[in-house]
């Protein structure tokens, strides 16, 4: 059995970068991009483990995840456009209409 821990470390670092990006950035587009990084890091784990276990199921999973992530991004961008039309900004801290 080969050592796959370094590969997983890469995936983890990607995930952490994405998560921090989601938490600290205010630009809606950057937040969306960070989300993409998180999703892809998870997908990377699938692929790594699939490769090391010698099966293809994980890679097939990732194809599905990628498809779903694409459609999800499309929805996210549509929301961003609409929000911009309403508030004339893409700063997420301005999007607090639910809070009175």
């Amino acid at each position: 059995m080969e050592n796959y821990v370094p590969f997983l470390m890469v995936a983890f670092i990607l995930f952490a970068i994405g998560a921090i990006g989601v938490l600290v950035r205010r630009n809606f587009f950057v937040v969306l991009m960070s989300l993409e990084i998180m999703i892809n890091s998870a997908g990377l784990v699938f692929v790594i483990l699939s490769y090391f276990s010698g099966t293809v199921s994980g890679q097939v999973f990732f194809i599905f995840v990628a498809a779903v992530a694409a459609s999800e991004t499309a929805v996210g961008l549509a929301i961003a456009v609409l929000m911009y039309r309403v508030r004339h900004t893409v700063d997420v801290t301005e999007f607090s209409m639910m809070k009175r």
Partner: peptide, 14 residues
């Protein structure tokens, strides 16, 4: 807890 800032919510989730 309901601050209205999306980052705060994301913080709670993570």
């Amino acid at each position: 807890l309901q601050t209205g800032f999306i980052n705060n919510y994301a913080c709670w989730v993570s």
